[in-house]
Design a protein around this nucleic acid. Structure first.
Length: 529
RNA sequence: UCCUCGGUAGCUCAACGGUAGAGCAUGCGGCUGUUAACCGCAGGGUUGUAGGUUCAAAUCCUACCCGGGGAGCCA
């Protein structure tokens, strides 16, 4: 059934897709069904929607089918009175995630998800689903990770993937609008960029090769060809990290700009982050609402970001203010723990007389409380160590995860830390002309405990210095001969950075763990599905 | 590699030395508009594996396997 709406209003749905493109089905091709996010344009018309059964409810003579088609959810009502026998049979028989084609009239109904519902006159069962493993209730993470291919269909994952999509789109827009050329660095490489991280080794026709851990060096070569470039590709780290901030395969965006110094580099990083967050809030309001993301911290992501030197960051760690914040946190945890335990106790007393659906709510609440209590216990164990680590931090050390987080507590938006002691930074970093102990590197730390999402800096331009650095880091000089050429043939000041896509998406969505920010996460001990 | 928590029905959890339970999911029945609908009934378990302590073990002990969280490292 073709779209029979005569409306000429602009496509409301396209605004929600957030791509800026007119996304009306009618513009694509002569297809015979409409997407759920375009139902508003078809009010009063008879349309066909195709999708999967998300959930259903029924009572005598009525079935409420919640249909999911990827663009949104819509309640489709089948009434025994107005539907033919075959249609009624389909409504009765269809199981969760069965594929359906439903035809009916679109009616405005404020109470429904999406604001519209379809009065079904005819239903076709495209395929009947077997018993679906993911039921509409709470599930554990191991189970869900094993069902990741199906879990992606759930509302929460839908929202996250849509935000990820929007972030990717905004990244391209941001750079393209500024004359950057997107160029791809190789994924298979013969050498390590930084030498420190662990690489995935593969057999390359009998020779050793590695999966890239950064497009950085090739990015520099491409910037010398194009002026301003950015890479956007997968990155691999074989570190045996087992934390909520690590993946073994993740996507990284690495801009590289000729004739840009460290300050200009920080400007680019800041403008980009502001753009990503602003766009996400503007175009993914529904998604962020589904994720129950607190928008206040995101609204504060406006330039200029505070810029602190490594020296200043160390001072912050040593400050009385930091010690006071630590005590405050520890005290806050105690108060929260007491109140949660009190609630748990009260709920248990009320449980006996509660009705069935209330019991279910208590159950869900108990799970949430227990989870939070476990987190609190964990934080209680670590906060004193964090406090000690901050107090005794020695100049010259690299920041640990906790030190980073502690620094971000002092600011209400992302903070840029720059000019680090050179000895724990990569060999290609330029030295600070004003202090030879420092390298012109910079990290952007996201607030709310999300930590480092960007790392970069100004690159060394002097050939002799670079060669000495390669030797000092114990790297084989031969494999860098092409890289040295960049300094032989028109070496210029240049800089760039790398941004972790999943960390950024995690932060914007307010996720607890990075693994939800990528369709199929690759973690130590997880390469399925 | 180290620290820490856990493994009970298809799923989420309870039972903490004495006959393994609840909700969801599934099946059947009821209810003209439900919003994770609701109400009733039913099926569903060698409590991760292997030993040990005990009259008695899901529960205590030991080892191993699997998973969650964290440290180090980093995007």
């Amino acid at each position: 059934m073709a779209c029979s709406s005569s409306s000429t209003r602009p496509c409301l749905a396209s605004a929600r897709w957030g791509t800026g493109w007119p996304n009306c089905d009618a513009d694509l091709m002569p297809i015979d069904f409409v997407s759920i996010d375009s139902l508003a344009r078809h009010e009063g018309a008879t349309v066909t929607v195709k999708g999967w059964l998300y959930n259903k409810r029924g009572s005598k003579g009525l079935w409420f089918l919640i249909l999911r088609d990827g663009s949104g959810l819509a309640q489709c009502v089948v009434s025994q009175e107005s539907a033919d026998a075959a249609t009624w049979e389909v409504a009765e028989a269809c199981t969760q995630e069965s594929a359906l084609s439903l035809t009916g009239t679109v009616r405005r109904d404020e109470r429904q998800v999406g604001g519209y519902e379809v009065q079904v006159t005819s239903a076709t069962l495209v395929s009947l689903a077997e018993e679906y493993p993911i039921t509409p209730k709470e599930h554990g993470i191991e189970f869900l990770m094993n069902q990741r291919h199906l879990w992606l269909r759930s509302r929460r994952q839908w929202a996250i993937m849509r935000v990820r999509n929007r972030v990717i789109y905004s990244i391209h827009q941001f750079f393209q609008e500024r004359g950057f050329v997107q160029m791809d660095a190789p994924i298979l490489t013969g050498n390590a960029v930084e030498g420190t991280s662990t690489l995935f080794a593969i057999d390359y026709f009998g020779r050793p090769a590695y999966l890239t851990q950064s497009g950085q060096l090739h990015g520099e070569a491409m910037a010398m060809a194009m002026g301003k470039i950015y890479t956007f590709g997968p990155t691999f780290r074989a570190e045996k990290s087992k934390t909520r901030r690590h993946l073994t395969e993740f996507w990284m965006i690495e801009p590289e700009m000729a004739f840009y110094d460290l300050d200009m580099n920080m400007e680019v990083a800041e403008a980009m982050l502001v753009r990503l967050v602003t766009d996400a809030m503007e175009h993914c309001a529904e998604e962020l609402a589904i994720l129950e993301r607190d928008l206040e911290p995101l609204k504060r992501v406006q330039g200029p970001f505070p810029r602190v030197t490594y020296d200043e960051a160390v001072e912050i760690l040593h400050s009385d203010e930091t010690a006071r914040m630590m005590d405050e946190k520890i005290e806050g945890l105690k108060v929260e723990e007491a109140s949660l335990r009190a609630e748990l106790e009260a709920n248990r007393k009320a449980y006996g007389q509660a009705k069935k659906h209330e019991k279910r709510q208590y159950d869900a609440r108990e799970i949430a409380i227990n989870q939070r209590l476990a987190d609190i216990e964990e934080e209680n164990r670590y906060l004193p160590k964090w406090k000690e680590s901050a107090r005794t931090f020695e100049w010259g050390n690299d920041f640990g995860g906790s030190d980073e987080t502690v620094v971000t507590w002092h600011f209400d938006r992302p903070v840029i830390v720059h000019r680090f002691p050179h000895h724990f930074k990569a060999f290609y970093m330029k030295r600070d002309p004003e202090d030879d102990r420092l390298a012109l590197g910079m990290d952007v730390l996201a607030p709310e405990g999300y930590g480092e999402i960007i790392g970069g800096g100004e690159r060394a331009t002097d050939l002799a210095f670079l060669k000495a650095q390669v030797e000092a880091h114990g790297l084989p000089e031969e494999v860098f001969s092409w890289y040295f050429d960049l300094r032989r043939f028109g070496s210029v000041p240049h800089s760039g950075f790398g941004m972790g896509l999943e960390r950024t998406v995690s932060w914007i969505c307010g996720l607890h763990h990075l693994r939800e920010a990528i369709p199929f996460p690759r973690l130590i001990d997880r390469i399925y599905p």
